[in-house]
């Protein structure tokens, strides 16, 4: 297994108390595989990724427990120096907003080349040559002429390509993409997702795709982990989860999106609001919004049940997963 996150807990100290952003997350991704982490804002999907990358702001953040195994070694036990060698070189991240993630006063060539200067000890001139190669690789037209341009001179889609190029620079074995296409228009989104999938295949990388878009997930993911209030509530191969969700939250999400291919009736709406992380409801965190909630849901935190009726391994954190599966 390339990456395995085990029982990860992350907390943030705030003025109003401790916000439990991640409460025991487990997931894993293999080389060449795409894991989609699906969740709404505040579900802990980005915080988990930041903990994996080691770019969490600490303080106020604190990793309160768990293990992050990357190629068998626990990242949380490593010294910062060792982690720096891995970060960027063997695991890399693509952020949502390319304009604010790139340095506005450095040319893109300098920013791409920096990877090679820092990690590979190349000279500035060689690094620049590598930068042009990378820009070619992510299909930026006229790479040679544009290598000295600044981020603001590129369009949104082109900037996101530069982010991808930067992440791929040292051919990492794991890429974490945090909402990589959310800021892009749909025709450009399609181009960027295609490019990412193509490069992933070529380099046999593991990809963790963090998103809230159920459409993008259906297009590219192999397996899905659905997060709610800092926990994984359901994990399954992509086809199973869309065909028959085993958690009422997943079911609610799927029912609440309008479809392009049909004009539906009134949309199903999950009632209420996502929980406040300072005061997560007792028992199952989803119980106040759940149409199936019973007394036990308010008192007992559901463990991750094995969904035994499925041939592929899948899990659901719902006491009544069986009922949900057949609903």
């Amino acid at each position: 297994m390339l990456l395995e996150v085990r029982d990860l807990h992350v907390e943030f100290k705030t003025r109003d108390g401790v916000a439990k952003a991640v409460n025991g997350v487990n997931y894993s991704v293999d080389a060449g595989q795409t894991l989609a982490v699906l969740g709404e804002s505040g579900s802990g999907k980005s915080v988990t990724a930041q903990a994996v990358m080691g770019i969490l702001d600490m303080p106020p953040g604190r990793i309160a427990g768990g293990e992050i195994l990357f190629k068998g070694a626990d990242l949380l036990k490593m010294k910062e120096e060792e982690r720096r060698k891995i970060r960027g070189a063997d695991m890399a991240m693509i952020f949502q907003d390319a304009l604010s993630s790139l340095n506005p006063v450095l040319s893109v060539g300098a920013q791409l080349g920096e990877m090679f200067e820092v990690h590979r000890g190349m000279s500035r001139k060689d690094a620049r040559g590598k930068a042009v190669e990378l820009m070619d690789r992510v299909k930026i037209p006229a790479a040679k002429e544009r290598v000295g341009d600044y981020p603001h001179q590129f369009s949104g889609g082109m900037r996101q390509r530069i982010m991808i190029a930067m992440a791929l620079a040292l051919e990492p074995s794991l890429i974490i993409a945090d909402e990589p296409t959310t800021a892009l228009d749909v025709t450009v989104q399609a181009q960027v997702m295609d490019l990412l999938a193509e490069l992933q295949r070529e380099l046999n990388m593991g990809l963790i795709l963090i998103t809230h878009d159920l459409g993008v997930v259906a297009d590219v993911a192999d397996k899905i982990a659905v997060m709610y209030a800092g926990r994984i509530v359901e994990a399954a191969p992509v086809h199973d989860i869309y065909r028959s969700p085993a958690h009422p939250y997943t079911r609610g999400l799927l029912d609440s999106i309008p479809r392009l291919d049909q004009k539906g009736q009134e949309l199903y709406a999950i009632k209420g609001l996502p929980p406040n992380l300072l005061a997560i409801p007792s028992g199952c965190a989803f119980n106040p919004r759940c149409p199936m909630a019973r007394a036990v849901c308010r008192t007992d935190v559901p463990p991750l049940y094995e969904v035994t009726e499925s041939p592929a391994p899948r899990t659901s954190a719902c006491h009544f997963w069986k009922e949900c599966l057949h609903a």
Binding site: T187, Q189, D213, V217, A221, H239
Partner: peptide
């Protein structure tokens, strides 16, 4: 054709038109 459809089964059935450029 570029809009992702929330149905993994549609991956094969769909014809995608990928526009070039911006």
């Amino acid at each position: 054709s570029a809009v992702p459809v929330p149905d993994p089964g549609a991956r094969e059935r769909r014809e995608r038109i990928i526009l070039t450029g911006d």
